[in-house]
Design a protein around this nucleic acid. Structure first.
Lengths: 349, 349
DNA sequence: TGGTTCGATGGAATCGGTTCCACGGAGGAG
DNA sequence: CTCCTCCGTGGAACCGATTCCATCGAACCA
């Protein structure tokens, strides 16, 4: 039994007699032999591992995407190497190091994008790059139409009769390079303009991403003579912060303030939040599928996923002071009235 | 410039003249050279990667532990290879495959434990194994005293005058091999016995882990002539399910039902849940530190982390029908009364 | 000035696979 | 019967690092 034959058996080559194959497998069993992954990687030039870079713990939505990625990669026998971006700027480090021969077969980036310089190096090295939740001109990306999403949310509020609608989002040039908030705001302004509502700069709130920060901004915005009657937050996390602020000020939701979020993360379902839903887990799964195709040498193109407005219990008609205080809406699961809290009415974009 | 010199420069060997080092670095820059990770791994026998196996998405507490692991490993320049256990039994597959030369330097298992057979193979291969959230006789493990935690929670309820105290936990022999629920229940029974309260089998609720399942069990348990006045859940997820059930039946929390959870995951802070807190992120970090020590050839021993009872707003004195309906407590952040919802009173174990 | 030591450097073996290529034997055709 | 083909198998080169060991030169001491 030469090494070549053993290798052929291990790799399922058909050019081995059945009897030989059996003999080899028996010996492998007897010796307790296990192939060395590093040697195989060196020889084949493929490590069967994909790097996944993202701010996993900073943004809950990213976790749900990761779940889809993990499922698909594991199913295909690929290893998932996790690079968590804890602080802004850290991702640049990862991207640089990975482009310098990290030994990974592919790079999947969630909500972030490598610098052009690094992208060139990936291209030179033949390492495919797939983006999830970040549009790109040349790279294959799984994304949604943030502008349409912003419009969808704002139109919903306009339809309910609201005219003083606040926007709550991220700082425009944040250090992570997140850009979705900017586009969602563009959709918000499109919708306002289309409805002939003049935008009020005082109603555009922006700050670092986070529940607390969002709550602080909302408290300020509500504590004025003529507060907004509705608010569109560029993420569910920020929307939840807004709900918290409304509660703190004794404002009823949706009676005094209607709130729409974005993403439909798990907490939105629990909070009964009306929100723009995008398929989070599916986006990760799709990104991973694209990565697999690219790794097999196939051609891939970016894909856009659909958005859906999920109407739950934090939005209502303007002026009707029905509704309870905000905290009443932060209830779990189904209520006694038969209707499920988990799923509200769904409206396709 | 021989290959040996280049290698020495890359590995920071002092046996290189400064001028030579500079010349080598210049050439590396000029050629855009990047070392091959697989070749290095083959040559050194170390891949600088650690496998982390856990049911990440099934249990929120595991995510928080992962965060600690990720931070420490990244800081030490190790790669984190994620193996998510989606379905019971899947972990056995992973453990087997990894023991068969996965090419990883170490194995860190969260809430799960490999079979003895696989452990033997890891030992033979010289691959260190560290357990987090799972006690073990021989393996180094980061764990807490679940029995003491169960006692802590139950004593709190007893101190408040409760006598009919229900326990809500996992099926004893669940397919994942989780055992913490069993030990927490032991602490619960210890505390009852010590207080001279006779246990009632009808008050011991067990089912598959999950919010919905917990809610269903609690609904049944409350819908009897003489329902329990308090409930200790073996996890926050289950406790939240119990809160949901209480709300559905119109039971006030803590007026009609006091609820204590376990873990202190993020949702517990938001729900104002009284719970037994354990340092989740720190447990992951500690496990990773231990792994690093083992990888450097050091000796490591298991460590026990402290528990703490965090009293928030879901527990109150027995018989006092104060309190609002359950949903009132599911509020975010701080309220207007000055006291922070995030942190309740803390009681050391 | 010659010999010795020490530090810097380069050549070559090594890790453990995959795969090209050569070889041997069996079977079919002329 | 001989030749050719084809299939199964084994030897050896190769992937790209690390590292042992030999070599070379300079410095130091006698």
């Amino acid at each position: 039994m030469g090494v070549a034959t053993v290798s052929r058996v291990l790799n399922g080559s058909p050019a081995v007699r059945d009897e030989t194959r059996r003999r080899v497998l028996d010996s492998i069993e007897a010796f307790g032999y296990a192939p060395n992954a590093a040697a195989r990687a060196l020889s084949t030039g493929r490590s069967l591992a994909v790097a996944v870079v993202a701010p996993f713990f900073t943004r809950p939505s990213v976790m749900e995407r990761l779940r889809g990625v993990s499922h698909v990669l594991a199913g295909a026998g690929y290893q998932l190497v996790l690079f968590d971006v804890e602080r802004p700027g850290e991702e640049a480090d990862y991207f640089r190091r990975l482009s310098a021969g990290g030994g990974l077969d592919g790079l999947l980036s969630i909500s972030l994008c490598p610098a052009d310089e690094d992208l060139d190096r990936y291209a030179d090295a033949g390492v495919p790059v797939v983006l999830v939740d970040h549009p790109h001109d040349t790279l294959p990306a799984v994304h949604t139409d943030d502008v349409a999403g912003g419009r969808l949310a704002t139109e919903h509020l306009l339809d309910l009769g609201h005219r003083r609608i606040a926007f709550l989002g991220d700082i425009e040039h944040n250090l992570y390079g997140f850009t979705s908030s900017v586009r969602r705001r563009a959709g918000y302004e499109d919708a306002l303009a289309a409805a002939g509502v003049e935008g009020d700069p005082a109603l555009v709130l922006r700050g670092p991403h986070g529940r607390e920060e969002a709550a602080a901004l909302t408290r300020e915005a509500l504590d004025v003579p003529e507060p907004p009657t509705a608010l569109f937050a560029a993420s569910d996390t920020q929307a939840v912060g807004a709900l918290e602020a409304a509660e703190a000020l004794g404002a009823r939701v949706p009676g005094d303030l209607s709130v729409v979020g974005y993403d439909d993360i798990e907490v939105a379902r629990h909070a009964g939040l009306t929100t723009v839903a995008q398929p989070l887990e599916a986006s990760g799964a799709m990104g991973a599928e694209m990565m697999l195709t690219a790794l097999e040498g196939g051609q891939i193109r970016g894909r856009e996923l659909p958005l859906e407005l999920v109407v739950r219990h934090t939005t209502g008609e303007c002026g009707k002071n029905r509704g309870r205080t905000a905290r009443h809406h932060q209830a779990w699961g189904t209520d006694r009235h038969g209707q499920s809290r988990q799923d509200g009415m769904r409206v396709r974009s």
